[in-house]
Simulated assay, not measured.
Amino acid sequence: MEPSKDYIFYHKGFCFPENLITPEYIDSLETFEIRDSDVFLVTFPKSGTVWTQNILSLIIHEGHRNGTENIKNMDRMPWLEFNIKNLDYTALPSPRVFATHLPYYLTPRDLRNKRARVIYVTRNPKDVLVSYFHFSKIIDTLEKVPDFNIFMERFLAGKVPGSKWLDHVTGWYSHAEDFNILFLTYEEMKKDLRSAVLKICDFLGRKLSEKEVESVVRQATFENMKKDPRANYEKLPEVFEGNEEGHFLRKGTIGDWKNIMTVAQSERVDEVLKKKMENLPIKFIWDINDQM
């Protein structure tokens, strides 16, 4: 079962959702004007993007942290390639924070001059796969594939927006020297959120008081974030309206793949990815009980 042509298209070797972006806009991003104060959050889909957006918002924007500004994260930190609301990005105040799923080679040219900061978050691919499968059932811009096995084969073949998980992660890690970049894993954030918050603060040059750090950590827990409509993408633009009832944020855990995947499916993912993953400078956590 091949994906419908109405849902995806390929441009310069990368798979995009059909109705959210054009090849011309993608090409225009090469000359996107970068400010030194810009921050780019880069992820493969379903790797902790929304969660990290919330953490960054809490760190950077005191108004979010102390509850005085009722601005949704999607408005505060727009998507670089998916300018759904046709915002004038040049008019945004500094520091601008953009989220993106782009591969390293399609990001703005000036980003490779180590102008601005890049935070790259990755997550173990089995949890990414399971999260992506559930996500595809509730978001209208993705094709609804009822059979997990079919979705898994598409995911492994890169026939989903974001293309191949391994290519995305390997691309960013192998070109790290071209960027001013901080690498984080979803799992380390889940295991020790406070340390991850401090790491991000240090990378951004943000000096928060102990009380402010504790406030960020408290509000950025997955459970508290799920209750916060500013942070949890509760109200999405019409273009994203869902196929069925569901939440943008689902479980936010490590090892949920074990509840969905059969032994054979797990072994299939291992067969395609495990050996190649050995070259990555990351130790992945596959279960909530595993040690870092």
Rank of each mutant, 00 (worst) to 15 (best):
220 A>L: 03
217 V>N: 03
25 Y>I: 01
176 A>N: 10
205 G>P: 09
240 F>E: 11
222 F>C: 07
10 Y>R: 11
166 L>R: 02
292 M>P: 09
282 I>N: 06
22 T>P: 00
22 T>C: 03
286 W>I: 06
131 S>I: 05
179 F>R: 03
61 H>K: 10
7 Y>E: 01
149 N>H: 11
275 K>N: 14
138 I>C: 12
75 D>R: 05
178 D>K: 12
79 W>A: 09
271 E>M: 10
28 S>K: 09
79 W>F: 15
252 G>V: 02
227 K>G: 07
250 R>M: 05
67 G>Q: 04
277 M>Y: 03
249 L>C: 08
264 A>T: 08
201 C>N: 02
60 I>V: 15
74 M>N: 04
232 N>H: 07
87 L>N: 01
173 Y>E: 11
35 R>M: 00
26 I>T: 09
231 A>S: 15
287 D>L: 04
260 I>M: 15
25 Y>D: 04
103 P>F: 10
282 I>C: 09
268 R>D: 03
176 A>S: 15
80 L>D: 01
283 K>L: 04
99 A>E: 02
114 K>A: 09
30 E>A: 12
116 A>N: 02
55 I>P: 05
116 A>D: 05
228 D>M: 07
260 I>W: 06
137 K>E: 13
118 V>M: 09
197 V>W: 09
222 F>G: 07
81 E>S: 08
52 T>V: 10
220 A>K: 03
67 G>W: 00
204 L>S: 08
283 K>N: 14
170 T>L: 11
124 N>V: 07
262 T>N: 05
157 A>P: 00
244 E>R: 12
207 K>A: 14
88 D>V: 00
111 L>H: 01
156 L>G: 02
224 N>S: 01
191 K>R: 14
209 S>E: 10
176 A>V: 03
7 Y>H: 08
124 N>D: 13
258 K>H: 08
292 M>Y: 12
7 Y>F: 15
191 K>N: 14
278 E>R: 11
193 L>I: 10
78 P>R: 00
291 Q>G: 13
